[in-house]
């Protein structure tokens, strides 16, 4: 025989000693995501925007609260984007460096979006999963509470909050956090209801796993796909909400700024020939929204390959 039995046996023993690494559903999804060109482009855009927000301060020649007195009063002629005087994106109406302002606006808008989505993910997921899993009267009570909160016109409440308690970042986060988790909890509850009667949940109950552990270990990991997709689509929604509030003049307060506030200022001076004041913040705003939507779409396709 060509094959030596003794050697084959030792090979078999060697092979069965090493633990085989499993291919988790997450790893499969990652592979599909990487193959999706639009989603990868979106991800790269988001990474670049993120780097811009983090590192832009070190690149800027001017700080965001410095006034350039040489361009003041003649912004349309002197304040246009140029590499010589260090105003890469030009200056705003008061002679402040627009590059530094855009960096700052990007930081704040991204933070609002991500914090809002994070609140939605944590609160909405736990709330919805609990309501769906417990069921019965508790579910009825919890979901009717969500219905009531949803029926209140949130923009109105948000504006009232900001007017009554003063404009501050924490108030903005509170207002956005209050409304962002409602839709998430509904989606998660629906998913939980369909998961609840699957046999592996029943198996866990038969084993005697306590209810909170079933929710955390069996229900939530199987929901995360939907949650991840919805969260990436929620970030741009939060950014839009904040921008709208800022556009109305109620959002973040000077000297802080955000995309919405910058776009609002830029739109106000459009007629004076300083179009760059609108163009730069708008450019970042638009590519970020596109990036998030592409990534969200890609995530959905990657996590649910049957639904394409």
């Amino acid at each position: 025989m060509v094959i030596e039995e003794r050697k084959m046996q030792s090979l078999a023993a060697r092979l069965s000693q090493d633990e085989v690494r499993g291919r988790s559903p997450w790893a499969d999804a990652r592979k599909r995501f990487v193959r999706n060109k639009a989603a990868m482009a979106g991800l790269i855009i988001l990474i670049l925007v993120g780097l811009f927000a983090l590192l832009g301060e070190y690149v800027a020649a001017w700080s965001n609260d410095e006034l350039d007195f040489t361009v003041m009063g003649q912004v349309a002629q002197m304040g246009m984007p140029s590499l010589q005087n260090g105003h890469y994106f030009g200056t705003d109406d008061l002679g402040r460096d627009l590059f530094a302002r855009t960096v700052q606006g990007t930081q704040i808008s991204l933070m609002v979006g991500i914090v809002g989505a994070a609140i939605a993910v944590v609160v909405g997921t736990l709330y919805g999963a609990t309501a769906g899993y417990v069921g019965g009267r508790t579910d009825q009570f919890m979901m009717r509470a969500v219905d009531i909160l949803m029926s209140i016109p949130y923009m109105f409440v948000l504006i009232l909050l900001l007017v009554m308690f003063g404009r501050s970042m924490s108030m903005l986060f509170l207002g956005i956090g209050l409304i962002s988790w409602l839709d998430m909890s509904r989606i998660v509850r629906g998913q939980t209801l369909s998961l609840k009667n699957r046999e592996f949940i029943e198996a866990a109950r038969a084993i005697g796993v306590p209810a909170w552990k079933i929710v955390l270990r069996h229900v939530v990991p199987n929901l995360l796909g939907v949650v991840a997709v919805y969260a990436t689509l929620l970030v741009p929604l939060m950014i839009l909400t904040e921008s709208f509030i800022s556009f109305l003049g109620l959002g973040v307060q000077e000297p802080l700024t955000s995309w919405g506030a910058l776009i609002s200022e830029g739109a106000g001076t459009m007629n004076y020939g300083t179009l760059w004041q609108l163009a730069f913040p708008l450019f970042f705003f638009v590519i970020t929204l596109f990036g998030f939507f592409f990534v969200g779409d890609g995530l959905r396709d990657a996590l649910d390959p049957k639904d394409r």
């Binding site: 988790s24 559903p25 997450w26 592996f200 029943e202 038969a206 084993i207 270990r217 069996h218």
Partner: peptide, 19 residues
């Protein structure tokens, strides 16, 4: 519960796909 255990009908559905 540790004295009485159960084996289910659908082999794949009774195992958590994320574990």
């Amino acid at each position: 519960r540790s004295d009485i255990q159960m084996v289910f009908q659908d082999p794949l559905a009774s195992l958590n796909p994320r574990m």
